[in-house]
């Protein structure tokens, strides 16, 4: 699978890492020379310096042979044009646009760009779900909430008390990365048994957070 990603910063960095780990061939387009240098050092991907809404740059990134295109810049107008070029000029079968202003979602739909993701909206939905949020001690959205580090405390009502981690089914791409027990950090393993008062540091994607919290705190 050949994927072209336009954008930068942590979102694109982490997404590209996930794509690479799945064995995809990834080309990243970014218009900042310094960031391109950093990405080139950190990722086994082709990094192209330039404007991703320029057809020549897209072509250089292999848009003609791409299976998927992800437009994830901070500017909705750029993401719109990138996706429209991807579909109309390069006939890429799957294009996906990041929407920064949630009000642009119906606008993009009206303009024929239907595969979109809006981080702001995902977070707003989570708040509406009201799943045991009193157990959340700390929540760090990374890159405007595209990845979430959440710290929860296990109360008496938690369904995972006295169970080992390997028996707890969390959504894919979620991970209990650390446990704090009486102030002592524990690096969790499959056999780690959770106790009352444990503080769990979990990394997950925003769309899975409701499910993660529900699983851990009931």
């Amino acid at each position: 699978m050949n994927v072209v990603v336009v954008g930068g910063e942590k979102l694109v960095y982490f997404l590209t890492r996930i794509f690479i780990s799945k064995g995809y061939h990834v080309a990243v387009i970014n218009r900042d020379a310094d960031e391109c240098r950093r990405l080139a050092k950190a990722l086994r991907a082709r990094i192209i310096l330039g404007d991703g809404s320029n057809p020549r740059i897209l072509e250089e990134a292999g848009a003609n042979a791409a299976d998927a295109l992800l437009a994830a810049t901070h500017h909705d107008q750029d993401n719109l044009v990138i996706c429209q070029l991807g579909v109309r000029k390069f006939h890429i079968p799957r294009t996906l646009a990041l929407i920064n202003d949630p009000e642009n979602e119906p606008v993009f739909a009206a303009l024929g760009v239907t595969s979109v993701f809006s981080a702001t909206k995902i977070l707003a939905n989570l708040i509406e779900q009201k799943t045991g949020y009193e157990s959340i001690v700390n929540l760090i959205p990374i890159e405007e909430g595209k990845l979430i580090v959440v710290e929860t405390i296990l109360e008496g009502t938690s369904p995972v008390l006295n169970r080992s981690l390997r028996d707890i089914r969390l959504p894919e791409n979620s991970l209990i990365a650390g446990v704090l027990r009486s102030g002592q950090p524990i690096v969790p393993r499959g056999g780690t048994v959770l106790k009352l008062g444990d503080r769990l540091i979990t990394i997950c994607q925003p769309e899975d957070m409701g499910q993660v919290i529900k699983t851990l705190t009931g």
Partner: peptide, 14 residues
Amino acid sequence: DNANLMIAQVARKV
């Protein structure tokens, strides 16, 4: 350019 293309499309289609 991209802002112009988006604004024009919104004005026309929406």
